[in-house]
Each structure stands twice: as structure tokens, then as C-alpha cells.
Write a protein that binds this DNA or RNA. Structure first.
Length: 250
DNA sequence: AACAGAGCCAACCGCAGAGAG
DNA sequence: ACTCTCTGCGGTTGGCTCTGT
């Protein structure tokens, strides 16, 4: 399904990522953040280019990502957003927490596009190119969201928003149950284990998950700290051990 | 069972924007 | 004002899997 691994003329590895590489990248980013993607591979002991590392992290290793299993609601939202925004996949991804632009793009081309009325789609693109498509007329949720500094891929795994699974410490108490559920679900989906997710629902009622744990400066200086959930059994451990737990279990 | 073509998705590439010097 | 570096977006591709013959 993916390109076979190979080394280019500069000794940089390309193609599919191994589990060992994933572990190295995940461990490094969780511990030190990703302030400089160019230097990161060398520091993390990877033979990849920074761009490749960034892509792997953003599209696959980032916490709380969902893979596949699009709900009808998500598909409707993608169609709606695409009609309004065209191929602005990063903007569309902002409206679907846990989904990446690449994932949505693939899903669009492989599943949604063919099911849509062709003329509808063309009309949407035409509309985008017209002078009438002004900032003030765009749906409220998109106004001002085109700035690169707000793209979900830059800070989504750390940014606390109302629709995300990351919350600030002050806000977590109101939504703790749903947060725990959605975050735990993400963990389980990452491990391709629906069964585990179902059984872990029982753990939810037994307060298996603790309050969120704040990870400082994991995404560089400009991003807010990240919030993760840990089982009660590990919350008394040190910061480093908590990171180790996350590295092992994400 | 063997083959061919289509579907799918992870990963690559080129380009452009932003910021620093 | 210009150049350089870094980062991220969107289009494209390679190759595995699925489906039909």
C-alpha cells in the first residue's frame, strides 16, 4: 500500500515508516516538541528528512487522530465545507477534529466525489472564484480561518478548542466525561481495537481515567500546553514516567 | 487458481507564504 | 528591498488490496 523503503543519493530514507522509526519520532516529539523539523531527524536519530517526519507526525502519529470509519455526519460536513471552500483541505480539516487534511482529501477523492452530483460540485468551485465570495459572506465558522497561523496542522494536537479533545485545566471539569470518552476512543482506534474500546467503556464508569495531565511546551514556545488523560494508576508518577506511559500507550 | 483492472491510502514533490537576517 | 530558510498546503504517485472475469 505504501512505497517500499529506500535511501536516496544523500542517504535520506524514503518510503514506508517502520515501527521503530515511529517509536523514535513519537518519543522525541512528546519529550521535546517539534520547534524545528529540519533538525529534528538528526536529534531523534532518524535517517529521514524533516519534511517526512512532520508529515508522519501530523498525519499518523499525532495523538487523538481518527483513521477511517467516517460517520454520515462527518461526510455531510465534508461535502458542505467542500461546496463552500473548494479544495481547502486544511480548512475543512479544522471542522473535523481528529481528521487530517490528507485523510479528508483521500476520502473525498475515493468515496465522496463520485457520489456527488457533478454539477453541484462545479457550482461550488465556480462560486469560490466569484467576486461575491467575500469574507463577510462566508459562514461564520470560516471567517478569518484562512490565516496560516491558524491551520489545524500546526497546533491541533495541542490547541484547546471547544470541539477538540484537548481542554485547558480550568475548563476540563464541565466536560470531563465526554472528554474521557472521546480521548479514550481515539487511543483505542489508534490501536485498531474496537473490541478494546467497547470493553473500556466499562472502565469509564469505574473512573479508570484520571483528570487531564498537562504537558508543557511540547509543541514549541508558541503553542499552548497539551492535555492528556491518564489512568488513575499512573497519575502519581513523575512527569517523565507519565511521558513514558503516554509514549507506550498512544 | 490466475490474471487484470480499479480502488484506496500513505507518502512524496513542488510551490508559495512567512519570518529572520 | 532583497535573499534565504523553514514550514505547510494541495496535487500526484507507488504499490498493496480488492473485485471481477
Amino acid at each position: 500500500m505504501v512505497r517500499s523503503p529506500f535511501y536516496d543519493k544523500n542517504g535520506v530514507k524514503k518510503g514506508a515508516w517502520s515501527k521503530e522509526e515511529d517509536h523514535k519520532l513519537r518519543t522525541y516529539v512528546l519529550r521535546h516538541g517539534h520547534a524545528n523539523w529540519r533538525q529534528l531527524p538528526q536529534l531523534a536519530g532518524l535517517a529521514r528528512c524533516g519534511k517526512s517526519c512532520r508529515l508522519r507526525w501530523m498525519n499518523y502519529l499525532r495523538p487523538n487522530l481518527k483513521h477511517g470509519n467516517y460517520t454520515p455526519e462527518e461526510e455531510q460536513l465534508i461535502i458542505k465545507c467542500h461546496r463552500q471552500l473548494g479544495n481547502k483541505w486544511s480548512l475543512i480539516a479544522e471542522k473535523l477534529p481528529g481528521r487530517t487534511d490528507n485523510d479528508i482529501k483521500n476520502h473525498w477523492h475515493s468515496h465522496l466525489k463520485k457520489n456527488l452530483n457533478q454539477s453541484d460540485a462545479e457550482e461550488g468551485v465556480k462560486y469560490l472564484k466569484t467576486a461575491e465570495y467575500k469574507e463577510s459572506e462566508r459562514p461564520r465558522e470560516f471567517v478569518g480561518s484562512e490565516s496560516r497561523s491558524h491551520h489545524i496542522l500546526e497546533s491541533s494536537w495541542a490547541r484547546p478548542t471547544s470541539s477538540d479533545t484537548c481542554y485547558t485545566q480550568e475548563n476540563h471539569s464541565d466536560s470531563s466525561v465526554s472528554l474521557q470518552q472521546s480521548t479514550l476512543k481515539s487511543y483505542r482506534e489508534d490501536q485498531d481495537s474496537v473490541a478494546s474500546w467497547e470493553t473500556s467503556q466499562e472502565l469509564m464508569t469505574s473512573e479508570f481515567w484520571s483528570r487531564p495531565f498537562l504537558v508543557e511546551n511540547t509543541c514549541g514556545l508558541d503553542t499552548p500546553p497539551s492535555m492528556f488523560w491518564y489512568p488513575y494508576e499512573v497519575t502519581d508518577l513523575s512527569h517523565d514516567l507519565l511521558l513514558d506511559w503516554q509514549i507506550q500507550n498512544c
